[in-house]
């Protein structure tokens, strides 16, 4: 459980109401990662959704593309809620990072309990997926070394 104020500061959740945030706070855990640590591996079962609070996380896609996400306002690990239910990228911390972790099953329970929240979350996730779609397309770079 985390403090609701921590979630209020996140840009990712700015459309969510105070009561939504309180429910999210009840299932969220602040996790701390060291520089160079891998948060999740591409292809592993996606069990958690994260919101980046502090630090930089590099999402490395299997096609060689990467997307650095810096400081608050980024949702990571959407596959915990929608197919393919496996992480589509590897998440590596470039710096020490703090992420708020939400177990996918708990989020499902929240969605079941609160449809309006579910719609907002799904819309947010749809947007994130759309934004990152271009990173998942096959790359045209080959390793030369």
């Amino acid at each position: 459980m985390i403090d609701t104020r921590e979630l209020k500061e996140s840009r990712y959740l700015e459309e969510f109401s105070d009561s939504d945030l309180a429910e999210l706070a009840a299932i969220g855990t602040a996790t701390h990662w060291r520089e160079g640590e891998i948060i999740f591996h591409e292809g592993s079962p996606a069990k958690n959704f994260f919101i980046l609070k502090k630090g930089t996380v590099l999402l490395c896609y299997p096609n060689g593309r990467s997307l650095p996400l810096k400081n608050g306002g980024h949702g990571i690990g959407w596959s915990s809620l929608v197919s393919p239910f496996r992480y589509t990228a590897t998440g590596i911390c470039l710096t020490d990072a703090t992420l708020i972790q939400f177990p996918g099953t708990e989020l499902y329970s929240l969605i079941r309990m609160n449809a309006a929240f579910g719609h907002k979350l799904m819309a947010k996730i749809a947007k994130t997926i759309e934004e990152r779609k271009k990173y998942r397309t096959k790359g045209d770079r080959q390793e030369q070394m």
């Binding site: 929608v82 579910g118 997926i129 759309e130």
Partner: peptide, 25 residues
């Protein structure tokens, strides 16, 4: 919500921008 999740999975497989989860609930 398992069957709603399956609906989401199959719908999403056909069109990654189709989100059926909340409709299936």
């Amino acid at each position: 919500p398992d069957s709603a999740r399956v609906v989401q999975l199959i719908g999403n497989r056909e069109d990654p921008s189709n989100y059926l989860l909340m409709h299936a609930m």
